[in-house]
C-alpha cells in the first residue's frame, strides 16, 4: 500500500505542475476564446530564459527570477497585441493555425538564441527524499507542488475577488455587456495572456528543473489537453482538478503497469482518459454546457 501512496502523492505533486500549465491555457480560452496550442511552448520558452539567465549569464537566482517573470509577462502582452489581436473575428481554424505557428516559432527561436543542447536549471533543492508516514516524497516535487499551489491559490483569489479578476470573469461571460459597463475588453485580453505568460514562466522553471531544458520541454503542453478536457475547457477549478487527476493517474498507472509493458503508460493513459471523457462528458467536470436553441 505504501507503494501506491508513494505513486499517488508524488503524482498529485506532478499534477499540480500540469495544473499550472493548464491554468494558462484555460485562462486564454475563457477570456478570448482562443485555443492556444503554444501553451507548452510558452513553458519551454520560460524554461529557456531561466536557464539562459542562470547558466549562461550567471545571474543569481534572486535576480534571475524577477527578470524571468517580467519578461514572460511582457512576452504574453506582445503575443496578444502583435499576433492575436489582428486575428480577432477570424475563423477558429485560422486562429488555431496561428497558435501552432507560434509554437514552432518559439521552439525555433529558443534553439537559435540559446542552443539546442539540454540545459539544467540548478535550484537549491536537496536530493534526499523525505519520508513521511512511510511515503517517499521527492523534495523537487514538493517544492514544485508548493510553488504551483501558492500561484494557483493566489490566482483563484485574484479571479474571484479583485476588481480586474471580476472584470475578467465578466468579459468571459459576455463581452458586449462587459463593454457596456465600462470594462476595457482589449486590456482584459492582454491581461489574460500576461497571466498565462507568468504561469508559463513558473512552469518553465519547475519543469525545466525536473526534466531539463531543451525544445522537448514544450511536450508538457500536450498533457494539458487531457487535463483541460477532463476539467472543462473554460473552468479554472477544472484546470486544477484535471491537472491533479492526470498527474496522479499517470504516476500510479506507470508504477504498476510499466514493469509489464516496458514503459509508455504515462503517455498512453491520459489520452485514453481524454477520449473517454469526450464521449461521456464533453464539457468536462466543471465546464459550462453550451445549449444551443434551434
Amino acid at each position: 500500500m505504501a507503494f501506491f501512496f508513494d505513486l499517488f502523492v508524488n503524482g498529485l505533486m506532478i499534477g499540480s505542475m500540469y495544473a499550472l500549465v493548464a491554468l494558462g491555457f484555460v485562462l486564454i480560452y475563457k477570456a478570448t476564446s482562443v485555443v492556444n496550442f503554444a501553451q507548452g511552448d510558452l513553458v519551454m520558452f520560460g524554461g529557456y530564459i531561466a536557464a539562459a539567465l542562470v547558466v549562461l549569464y550567471k545571474l543569481p537566482l534572486a535576480v534571475a527570477l524577477p527578470v524571468l517573470l517580467g519578461s514572460m509577462i511582457a512576452l504574453g502582452f506582445i503575443v496578444e497585441r502583435g499576433v492575436l489581436r489582428p486575428m480577432v473575428g477570424q475563423n477558429v481554424i485560422s486562429v488555431v493555425m496561428v497558435t501552432i505557428g507560434l509554437s514552432q516559432v518559439f521552439q525555433g527561436s529558443a534553439a537559435m538564441l540559446w542552443g539546442a543542447q539540454t540545459k539544467n536549471i540548478p535550484l537549491p533543492i536537496p536530493l534526499e527524499p523525505y519520508v513521511i508516514w512511510e511515503i517517499y516524497i521527492s523534495p523537487v516535487n514538493l517544492v514544485a507542488a508548493l510553488v504551483s499551489g501558492v500561484f494557483l491559490v493566489a490566482f483563484v483569489w485574484f479571479f474571484r475577488k479583485s476588481r480586474m479578476g471580476i472584470a475578467m470573469r465578466a468579459t468571459a461571460n459576455d463581452q458586449q455587456a462587459a463593454m457596456a459597463v465600462g470594462i476595457n475588453v482589449r486590456f482584459i485580453f492582454a491581461l489574460s495572456w500576461a497571466i498565462a505568460g507568468l504561469a508559463a514562466a513558473l512552469g518553465g522553471v519547475l519543469w525545466g528543473n525536473l526534466i531539463g531544458v531543451d525544445t522537448q520541454l514544450a511536450l508538457v503542453g500536450l498533457k494539458v489537453f487531457p487535463a483541460v478536457i477532463l476539467g472543462g475547457l473554460d473552468s479554472v477549478p477544472g484546470a486544477v482538478v484535471g491537472g491533479l487527476i492526470i498527474g496522479a493517474v499517470e504516476s500510479v498507472a506507470a508504477g504498476y503497469v510499466d514493469p509489464y509493458v516496458g514503459g509508455g503508460t504515462k503517455d498512453f493513459l491520459p489520452y485514453v482518459l481524454m477520449i473517454l471523457a469526450l464521449m461521456v462528458r464533453p464539457y468536462g467536470f466543471f465546464g459550462r454546457e453550451i445549449i444551443e436553441r434551434v
Binding site: 459576455d174 455587456a177 462587459a178
Partner: peptide, 12 residues
C-alpha cells in the same frame, strides 16, 4: 445602455 437582445453576465 441596455441591448435589444439583453446582454447580461448570465452565470452571475
Amino acid at each position: 445602455r441596455t441591448f435589444q437582445n439583453i446582454a447580461l453576465f448570465r452565470g452571475m
